[in-house]
């Protein structure tokens, strides 16, 4: 049984933003929000249902930037032709989020707003250097996903702000892989490697293991030292493992991800 709340149903971003407050929060798929409310962790007096705002849905390519509406479901992203063609790693990540029901219900924006530390999506987006667009009555600001995710369940987003879209700059000639180690309901560690050959940049992002994704940056995958990346992470100790174990499997999965990256590009 959920606690009592009221419902608001705006149809434009402006209306939606006008509804938001500390007590009145955005609601889309509910896969995070409703669980938190049922657990008594969160008790807003009203939910602002943003599913009826067309501007918040869909995937567009504009000036080399792929824009994903915040209310778009994981399933739609996973199956989208643009995403599969331009950012196949992201499509794979989205195909592996939760289960088929969560993918059909849950939205990409909700996933980021909750700053769920075991989010596959956040790790992948940080690897792509994606940002989000946050709108409030006072205007719109762009924030890198790596900066949006401030801590476990703590995003840099004010209560009166609405996450409108995710903006992913399309890399040039690149390879990317995401590999996760998952033995329970959520991943123990997720490793994204993004090798932008045309820009001579390589990013390794390790998520799920700590409160926020950790980023290593260089020019080429050959420079990556998995054990050093494992030292960068600050593991959260939980039922999936101790800090020592999580550091260890971080190194193992960075190594495996690099191997997969080699395999993904027949050179």
């Amino acid at each position: 049984m959920l606690p009592r709340f009221d419902l608001l149903r705006p149809t434009t971003v402006a209306e939606a933003v006008g509804c938001l407050s500390e007590e009145s929060v955005p609601y889309c798929g509910g896969t995070e929000l409703l669980l938190a409310m049922r657990a008594g962790l969160y008790r807003p007096s009203a939910l602002v249902d943003i599913k009826r705002v067309p501007e918040l849905r869909g995937i567009r390519l504009r000036d080399g930037v792929l824009s994903i509406g915040a209310a778009t479901s994981h399933r739609v992203v996973a199956l989208d032709a643009l995403v599969r063609g331009q950012l196949p790693m992201l499509a794979t990540v989205e195909q592996g989020v939760g289960n088929a029901r969560v993918r059909a219900q849950g939205s990409v924006g909700g996933n980021l707003c909750f700053a769920e530390p075991k989010s596959d999506l956040a790790t992948a987006l940080v690897a792509y250097e994606a940002s989000v667009s946050l709108t409030s009555a006072g205007g719109t600001r762009e924030v890198l996903v790596s900066e949006l995710i401030q801590g476990a369940y703590f995003a840099d987003k004010e209560p009166d702000e609405l996450l409108v879209s995710i903006e992913i700059p399309l890399p040039g000639d690149h390879d990317a892989v995401y590999l996760k180690y998952q033995t329970m309901e959520r991943p123990t560690v997720g490793v994204a490697v993004m090798n932008d050959r045309s820009g001579r940049r390589c990013r390794v992002v390790v998520g799920a293991v700590g409160e926020v994704p950790v980023v290593w940056e260089g020019t080429d995958p050959s420079e990556v030292v998995p054990d050093e990346i494992a030292e960068l992470v600050d593991p959260v100790v939980d039922l999936t493992g101790s800090a020592r174990y999580k550091r260890h499997v971080t190194a193992v999965y960075v190594r495996r991800a690099l191997r997969a990256l080699e395999g993904s590009h027949p050179s």
Binding site: G30, L35, R75, G98, N99, R101, Q105, E185
Partner: peptide, 22 residues
């Protein structure tokens, strides 16, 4: 909690966890 799947129903042909779906 959306993990056991017992409550799955189809909404417009897509599977959802009816326990966590308004």
């Amino acid at each position: 909690l959306q993990v056991c799947g017992a409550c799955t129903v189809l909404v417009d042909d897509l599977p959802v966890s009816a326990c966590t779906y308004l």
